[in-house]
């Protein structure tokens, strides 16, 4: 990154590189094979023939967190499972994204009042990018969530932000001197 920081004062070409990277990333979001509860069945329906998530390049579920970019948390997370969910998230490499699927994961759902061991929303454990409500969400809803995530991934300006920050820092550093 040091090369970029010092040798690219003009930010235009950096944005072009960014948009290429963003397009590549958003077109190959690989989710993790991870099912917890009822929502997992609707998630499977999204992978299956009728809805066919592969149209958006996200239909290749990976069995290990180390190869996946996206973790869809489909189903209630309880105290025993939360430790595992956190560990799975920690094992994923950056950039990583989280979709909270279903009412339980968005905020406790039907288990919010008397669930003595349920975690009221997976955002208490790991940071969430997209919330997909519903009990369970319809496959269309999950696909909408994934399309929203694609937009978000495509907008991510990796190098441009770094270059901008480096320029800001230089200016600030000069002013401080």
């Amino acid at each position: 990154m040091g090369v970029l920081n010092n040798s690219l004062p003009d930010i235009g070409p950096v944005r072009a590189v960014d948009s290429a990277i963003g397009w590549g990333r958003k077109s190959s979001i690989w989710p993790m094979t991870f099912g917890i509860a009822c929502c997992a069945i609707e998630m499977m329906a999204v992978y299956a023939a009728t809805f066919d998530l592969d149209r958006f390049g996200a239909g290749v579920p990976r069995a290990t967190p180390r190869q996946s970019d996206l973790i869809i948390v489909p189903g209630t997370v309880n105290a025993k499972m939360a430790v595992r969910v956190k560990r799975l998230y920690d094992q994923m490499s950056e950039p990583r994204y989280v979709i909270a699927m279903g009412a339980c994961v968005c905020g406790g759902g039907p288990y919010v009042k008397w669930g003595y061991n349920t975690v009221k929303g997976v955002h208490k454990i790991i940071p969430v990018d997209i919330f997909v409500p519903g009990c369970p969400p319809r496959p269309e809803a999950l696909m909408d969530g994934i399309l929203k995530l694609r937009e978000k991934v495509g907008r991510n300006q990796v190098f441009a932000r770094q270059a901008q920050t480096a320029a800001d820092m230089d200016g600030r550093y000069a002013a401080a001197k």
Partner: peptide, 15 residues
């Protein structure tokens, strides 16, 4: 087991 324990029996006693 118990990674999906959702307290259904406790809920049944309350609703």
């Amino acid at each position: 087991i118990g990674y999906l324990h959702r307290c259904a029996e406790k809920i049944g006693e309350n609703v």
